[in-house]
Amino acid sequence: ILDIMMPQMNGIDAAFKIREEKNMPIIMLSAKSEDMDKISGLTAGADDYLTKPFNPLELIARVKSQIRRYKKYNERAERDIIQIGDLEINRSTRLVFVRGQEIRLTPKEFDILELLVRHKGTVMSVGKIYEAVWQEDAFKSDNTVMVHITKIREKIEDNPKKPIYIKTIWGVGYRI
């Protein structure tokens, strides 16, 4: 909840600052009730605008409404983000981060990593990985999966020779 007339930084500037980094509900509260004041507040990133004087119960209802909307909107996004240690995979944006640093993967590398993450703890054979990612019979795979796993490890592991995320299960396949 921001007031347009706050000390040090006004609510409009605060809303712009918040929107640079965060996606959270903002309710602008102000004695300024002119249309242009409301438009400025909403344009700055406020989700709602309430003028003084107001009924405290109305403010509570608006806060609850914004929280409900925020939770519903972000519920799917949270399901799409999978965290394993310092590794974060966002399935909807297809972005991968290690300790907050974005890691650039090719589409096939992402598909392999995402497949392993979805089956965390399960050993996936090279054939199953190939068929799931390339949508072709595994007999065409040669060393394709192994080469891709090596490249993924080089990008996400601190020491690709001693991986902590993608483990090789000798004679069987790979596991997260």
Rank of each mutant, 00 (worst) to 15 (best):
R99A: 14
I112T: 03
G41Q: 05
V96S: 10
I60F: 08
V63K: 10
G45W: 06
N90M: 04
L42F: 00
I60M: 11
V98N: 08
L105P: 07
E88P: 00
L113F: 03
L42N: 05
I89S: 03
E109M: 10
S92G: 00
E88R: 14
L95D: 13
F54R: 08
I60K: 13
F110W: 08
L42Y: 00
K71Q: 14
K32N: 09
S92V: 03
E102T: 14
K64D: 11
R118C: 08
V117N: 06
A46V: 02
I26N: 03
E114F: 05
A61Y: 05
T43M: 14
Q66C: 13
I112E: 00
L29R: 01
E78S: 12
V63N: 09
A31D: 08
K64Y: 02
K52T: 11
L115A: 07
M28G: 04
L50W: 09
F97N: 13
R76D: 13
R99N: 15
I27W: 03
M36Y: 15
A61S: 15
K64M: 11
Y49S: 05
R91I: 09
I67E: 12
E34F: 05
M28Q: 05
G85D: 09
Y73S: 12
S92D: 10
D48T: 02
Q66V: 02
A44I: 01
D111Q: 09
G85N: 10
L116G: 00
V63L: 13
F97W: 15
V117P: 03
T43L: 13
K32T: 01
F54G: 08
V117Y: 01
I103F: 07
G41E: 07
D47C: 07
Y70H: 15
V96K: 07
G41L: 06
R68A: 13
Q101K: 15
K52M: 09
F54K: 10
M28I: 08
L42D: 05
L116K: 01
N74K: 11
D35Q: 12
I82K: 11
R69M: 10
Y49I: 04
K32P: 00
G41S: 04
I67H: 02
R104E: 14
E114N: 15
R118G: 12
M36G: 00
E114L: 01
L57D: 14
K32M: 13
L29S: 02
Y49N: 07
K32H: 08
D80V: 00
D86V: 07
Y70I: 01
I27K: 06
N74H: 15
E88Q: 15
L116C: 01
T43Y: 14
L87D: 02
Q101F: 15
K64A: 05
E102P: 06
I26L: 05
I27A: 04
Q101T: 15
L105E: 09
D111G: 03
L95Y: 07
I89K: 02
P107M: 06
R118K: 14
L42T: 04
R118H: 08
G45R: 06
L115M: 09
N55H: 10
L113I: 02
R99F: 03
F97I: 05
E34N: 11
D37C: 02
N74C: 08
I27E: 04
D35H: 07
K71H: 13
D35F: 08
N55C: 05
L50P: 04
